[in-house]
């Protein structure tokens, strides 16, 4: 009852609860929040309190003293730490509703990986409810990504989406507002970072942190040979000497480092094409597939997938926000038709 009252003062939200970043789309206002899904927990005695959330917490990653731990509560697209996720969501929802007086109680649409289990979905739903949501809808990530990319999901035509996120890569073939085939591999931006870290350790005998690996990926990472050669200076701790050393990496080395995770993505795309019904496969062959998510920003990823699959490949505009925007559009559609886009709980 009181929740309903508070609902009058809150706007509907679409939340892309990602492994790497959480985005919130507010109905009528667009995307208002894009922050890393990181929570810093301060432990004093037996008391655990949230020290920082989002950007502030991300800066702490790997740089925390003993009593603070920076946690990424989402792992592989699903909740790894329930209570921390709830607190993070609560913080974000509050942050979005800065102007209202009452504690917000919005209707929330949360995107879930398509291969997540019922237990994982329930966990996400409950954590959103725990964060104060009045009503929680779940939508499968590739569906939201397809809507966000502007694909004709409601038509009787196959559309293929590859959403390369932080924790997972979601591949789905969508027709008539439903997911015909979906595939989720637990390879994403995090795996790219790990691969780069492992490569540097193997070839340079140096340890680099998560944040450095991410910076390398963003600046010189590429998925397809050719194009200009880029270089970056990196500092890491030399394992043999035990002191920080500086060295230079180039994009070809990173391409080499990323081979393995990229291969699993390509394999997943291929397997999706193999398993799709022939009519839809021909639609997709004609129109191509769309890449969304942070992984789409990796240089040459479209070329790689185009070459490996033989399909036209489009990188969605503003790929990072596709899922959140798609969720927002789905939220607007909820009122229009009782809604088959939403996943069943």
């Amino acid at each position: 009852m009181f929740k309903r009252l508070r609902g009058l003062f809150s706007s509907d939200l679409s939340i892309d609860l990602g492994t790497a970043n959480t985005l919130i789309y507010v109905r009528g206002r667009g995307i208002v929040l894009d922050e890393p899904s990181v929570v810093a927990i301060r432990q004093s005695g037996s008391m655990r309190s949230v020290a920082a959330v989002g950007l502030d917490a991300k800066r702490m990653l790997g740089r925390t003293p003993g009593n603070i731990t920076a946690i990424r509560p989402m792992k592989d697209g699903v909740i790894a730490d329930f209570t921390v996720t709830e607190q993070m969501l609560q913080y974000f929802i509050r942050k979005v509703h800065q102007s209202t007086f009452l504690t917000p109680s919005p209707r929330v649409l949360v995107c879930v990986p398509c291969m997540s289990t019922q237990v994982e979905r329930r966990a996400i739903k409950e954590s959103a409810e725990g964060a104060g949501a009045r009503e929680v809808f779940l939508i499968e990530e590739p569906m939201a990504a397809a809507i966000g990319a502007g694909l004709p999901v409601e038509e009787a035509q196959g559309s293929m989406v590859v959403d390369i996120g932080g924790g997972t890569t979601e591949i789905a073939i969508i027709s008539l507002s439903g997911v015909v085939y979906s595939e989720s591999v637990r390879v994403g931006g995090d795996r790219f970072d790990e691969a780069i870290t492992a490569y540097v350790r193997r070839h340079y005998g140096s340890l680099i942190g998560e944040a450095t690996a991410e910076r390398i990926k963003e600046e010189i990472g590429c998925a397809y040979p050719g194009g200009e050669l880029r270089e970056i200076d990196v500092r890491g701790r030399n394992l043999a000497e035990g002191v920080p050393r500086s060295f230079t990496l180039n994009s070809n080395e990173i391409l080499d480092a990323l081979q393995e995770p990229l291969a699993s993505i390509v394999a997943a795309v291929r397997s999706a094409l193999e398993q799709s019904p022939p009519e839809l496969a021909s639609d997709i062959a004609d129109r191509g597939l769309v890449i969304t998510g942070g992984g789409a920003l990796l240089r040459g990823i479209d070329k790689l997938i185009a070459e490996e699959s033989g399909l036209p490949v489009i990188i969605a505009e503003d790929p990072l926000t596709c899922v959140a925007r798609g969720g927002g559009k789905a939220l607007e559609m909820i009122d229009q038709h009782s809604f088959e886009l939403l996943s069943t709980d």
């Binding site: 667009g30 929040l33 894009d34 942050k95 990072l320 925007r325």
Partner: peptide, 18 residues
């Protein structure tokens, strides 16, 4: 719809005063 989307921005933390 896409026009309406504001550029990504970080929102100020909720004001204590309010």
């Amino acid at each position: 719809d896409e026009r309406r989307i504001t550029p990504i921005q970080t929102v100020r933390p909720p004001s204590r005063l309010g």
